[in-house]
């Protein structure tokens, strides 16, 4: 928690990997200041190349989305909604109420309970770590790109032509390298407001629910948790608190793991194959 300083789970050395504790991120936009320290810390630690986009005009978001070279991404929303109990300034139209809020959310790979990318990877490059995070082994990935279309959150992507790692698929590693040596993820460590909270998943989930109650009480009516446990994804290890609807944060309201389509598709494959077999043999036999 903010104020715990070096005792905060964002800073404290830990043994989660050794003790196989499932860990997670709880990201809370209501305290995010949009400083992007997480985004930069991630790129710095993981030596991710910069992608120079032009100025987008999408508020202060110039990196647009998660991708092969953006593993943390801060979204900037400008909404005509009141922000909790805050004392609002004089309004543009001169006549009193004209509510406005600027919301920031630091997006990241969700480290799904059931991960589309992992299920789909034909080389076994994507694996589950001791802390239940989803990790891409760069030395195995051959860049087939199947994970890219299998992620229901549009997170993982193939790095087309920039070094390092050209041609491979990349996403948040959950700083596995840091975690094995007892360090906390670079993004959480850098976050000055602890809008990103790193820690054992169980604790974070409790904390998350508490936080929502707190905010509701403070007249943040549309505060809710985003953690699709009821869908086939069965929950995410990097979950979020949202003000308003998921789609406003480019989060799918009802994400599904593609593997739920397997039965139907395979069924159709076998049926078609047999149909073709039988049909062809018959026509040749009888004509």
């Amino acid at each position: 928690m903010i104020g715990e300083g070096i005792l905060s789970s964002n800073q404290k050395p830990h043994k989660h990997v050794q003790e196989e504790v499932p860990v997670g991120f709880f990201t809370d936009p209501t305290v995010c200041i949009g400083c992007k320290a997480c985004e930069v810390a991630c790129k710095e630690w993981n030596n991710v190349p910069a992608e120079v986009n032009p100025w987008t005009g999408h508020s202060y978001d110039n990196t647009l989305s998660l991708g092969a070279s953006t593993w943390r991404h801060v979204l900037f929303l400008e909404e005509a909604k009141p922000r909790g109990p805050q004392i609002a300034g004089p309004m543009g139209n001169g006549n009193g109420q004209d509510p406005f809020r600027w919301v920031f959310l630091s997006d990241v790979c969700k480290h799904c309970e059931v991960a589309g990318c992992l299920e789909s990877c034909p080389t076994g490059a994507i694996m589950r770590t001791e802390t239940q995070s989803v990790y891409v082994q760069d030395d195995v990935c051959n860049g087939c790109g199947y994970c890219v279309v299998s992620c229901p959150f549009g997170v993982i992507d193939r790095r087309e032509n920039t070094a390092p790692g050209k041609g491979g698929a990349f996403k948040c590693t959950f700083c596995y390298d840091r975690q094995i040596s007892g360090l906390t993820p670079a993004c959480a460590k850098a976050c000055p407001t602890e809008s990103i909270r790193f820690g054992p998943l169980k604790d974070l989930q409790v904390e998350g629910r508490k936080r929502v109650q707190e905010l509701r009480a403070q007249s943040y009516q549309d505060a809710q948790l985003y953690d699709p446990t009821e869908t086939s994804v069965r929950g995410i290890h990097a979950f979020f608190l949202l003000l308003g609807r998921p789609e406003n944060y480019r989060l799918p309201p009802r994400p599904e793991v593609p593997t739920i389509y397997l039965a139907a598709a395979y069924g159709s494959v076998v049926a078609t194959a047999l149909l073709a077999l039988a049909f062809v043999l018959c026509v040749f036999a009888f004509l």
Partner: peptide, 12 residues
């Protein structure tokens, strides 16, 4: 510094 400048690349 590209990691910073890419975040705000133009004057507005």
């Amino acid at each position: 510094l590209s990691h910073l400048a890419e975040l705000q690349p133009e004057m507005f």
